[in-house]
Amino acid sequence: MEQEEKTIFQKMWNREGARAELRAANALALKQWQVEFSYPLSVLWFIVMPFLWFIPLIIAGMAITGGAESAALEGLVGTSDWITYIALGSAYTGLAISLMWGTGQALRREQNVGTLETLMTTPMKKETLVWGSMLHNLQHGGLGVILQLTASILLFGVTLNWWGIIPALMIVCLSVIGMQGLIFTVVCVVLVAKQGWMIVEFISSTLLLIAPISYPIAVLPTVLQYFSYASPLTWSVEGFRGFLMDGIAYSGAFNAIVALIILDVIFVIVGGLLFKRTERYVRMKGALSQF
């Protein structure tokens, strides 16, 4: 019996490779779902969250335009259907916020409940901790996007080009890679600054401001436009919305895909390096479980 237990333990310990990391990431994602569902209000929040962000934009838009058409927007982006334009932009934002906030704060949450050091000593790659949380937030945010888009179609008359769904999902995949670089940077801030949620709030609010969610980049001040072009969130929103509005005929497809690939490479390399260095630094300082 003892021998058998030892063998299982050794087998577990020796488990490595992409499959083992994937299983670990999946276990982390499932664990987070269980935690969320143990708070009854979380379920309610999960359902209403996408609408609480989207509806104020619709009310404000209605107060400004007085209808469903906007000549000013048509002059800027070629479509007067401002409701569809904003609905698609804000739907993607829900996913981005979920990825940035949820994953960015994942290690902090483990730190608060005293499980971060234990997780760090398990035989999985440190990056898997972040990937596991990212997987959960991708599922969480993805369901939110589906929920918001369905309600937007049913309640606000938003129209989608169904041919654009698969290319839009490809944009989401490219976007997730680039966002990982950003998320790794956010995790570094959280690990070093401890009470770094304020910095995370600042970074995410700035990224959301310069992203073309409810307005095109053209209305931003020139300096901010340059920052906007360098953000993967900008190209993700543009690509996601472009495909869902115009289908495969979306004219900005090439620009969005190429820009995302280039930014993915840059952000993943920089974010990954930063995470490795920060994690080593925090371990050396013995500050992993400090508040």
């Binding site: 838009g61 000013a72 600042f202 307005y215 209305v219």
Partner: peptide, 23 residues
């Protein structure tokens, strides 16, 4: 400021640079 600036930018995008007559 970062939270309400998007509303101002949205108003510019859908209503033009001036405050609309409807508003």
């Amino acid at each position: 400021l970062l939270w309400f600036a998007p509303y101002i930018l949205m108003a510019t995008a859908v209503g033009g640079p001036e405050t609309t007559a409807h508003f």
